[in-house]
Structure formats: structure tokens, C-alpha cells
Amino acid sequence: MSVLTNNLDLFLRLFGQTLQLFAISAVLSLVLGTFLAALRVSPVPVFRGIGTLYVTVLRNTPLTLVFVFFVFAYPLLEILRIDNYVAAVVSLSLYTAAFVCEVVRSGINTVPVGQAEASRALGLTFVQMLGNVVLPQALRSVVPPMTSTMIALLKNTTVASGFAVVQAGNIRESLSEQGENVLLGLLWVALGFVILVMPLTYAQQVFEKRWSVAR
């Protein structure tokens, strides 16, 4: 317990960093991923191709590799200078967006095709159909896998430790420098992540319940 109480400051600060990194990347990946899913179901073949290419390239590319690209290779292109924190946000967002895209797309596929046909027959544009009819109905089947994707993102933030972006993944280093029991410290870090996951799981239950009524 003393490992935690003696370093409470450190724990709170670095878990705060984790939360920040997670929150920014979550928002960005949800927006980008939903946009990519829209591309993948659009009537325009070129858009579908772009979406498919994105997912093919980024899904299951090792996250470390994505980080390496944005921290070390990307600066060599001399386009726009970004610091390591931004590189971490970009890497996590782009990587997670590929998974979000596929989760949203599978949700879209659960909505009967008649819903889209009725929208089109009424004169709704593709974007109106997606926004007003298809996505709202896709949401409810998307909630459980989307929660998993977000939990994976939360834990993936620790990869940033290797690239000088400080968050909960760096607690071990700091403890070891101070001569604390590192293994015990890691247990507390693990518990910290469990605590962070709990509200996500709770949110999943709330959304599942709310959206299951509306049908």
C-alpha cells in the first residue's frame, strides 16, 4: 500500500495523462472511423476503395510501427512539424479508426436494406439517409464491440511510453528510480486500468439499455 500512498501524486498525474491521451484519441478515432465507414458503404466506388485501402493498411499493423512512423519517419518528410505528443495522438487515432470503421460498418450491415431503400425512395440524400435512418439504428448493435475497441485504445496508450510521451505506462520507471518495489507498483497500475475500464463498461450498459427501447 505504501508504494501507492507514497507516490499518490505520481499515480494521479500520470493516470491523468493517460486519460487525456485516451479522450482525445477516442474522439478523433470515433469521428474518423465513422467517416471511413460511410466511405465504405457509399455508392461511389472510389470512396469505397479509399475506405477499404485505409482499413487494409492500418488494421493490425503493429501499433508500435505506426508510432515509429509518426515519431521518426514522418518528420523526415518535412510536411508539418509535430511533437511527440501529437504524434502519439495521431498514431493512436489513425490506428483505432480502422477498428472503429469496421465496427460501425458491421453495425450498418445489421440494419435491414429496406430502411435505406425507403429513405432513398423518399428523396433523402446518402448523407441524410446515413445520419437520420441507418446510423441511429446501427448504434445499438455497435455498442458492445465499440466498447471493446475503446478499452483496447485505453490500454494501447501505454505504447506511447516508448516514445517519450509520459502517462501511466511510465509509472514503473519512476518507481524503479526511487527504489520502490516495482512489481507491487505494477499491480497498482493494473488496478488503475481496471478502474478506468469500469466507467466504459457502465456506459456500455447504459447505452445498450437506452437504445434497445427505441425500436
Partner: peptide, 18 residues
């Protein structure tokens, strides 16, 4: 889309927005 707005359609399976 504009043209479809002027053409009403009724389906066998209703297709009301659930």
C-alpha cells in the same frame, strides 16, 4: 434524390423507420 422526392413508393414490407 430530387426526382425520387416526387415519386412516392410503398413497399411490400412497409419499411417504416424502426
Amino acid at each position: 434524390a430530387r426526382l425520387r422526392a416526387d415519386v412516392g413508393m410503398v413497399f411490400q414490407s412497409f419499411n417504416l423507420f424502426a
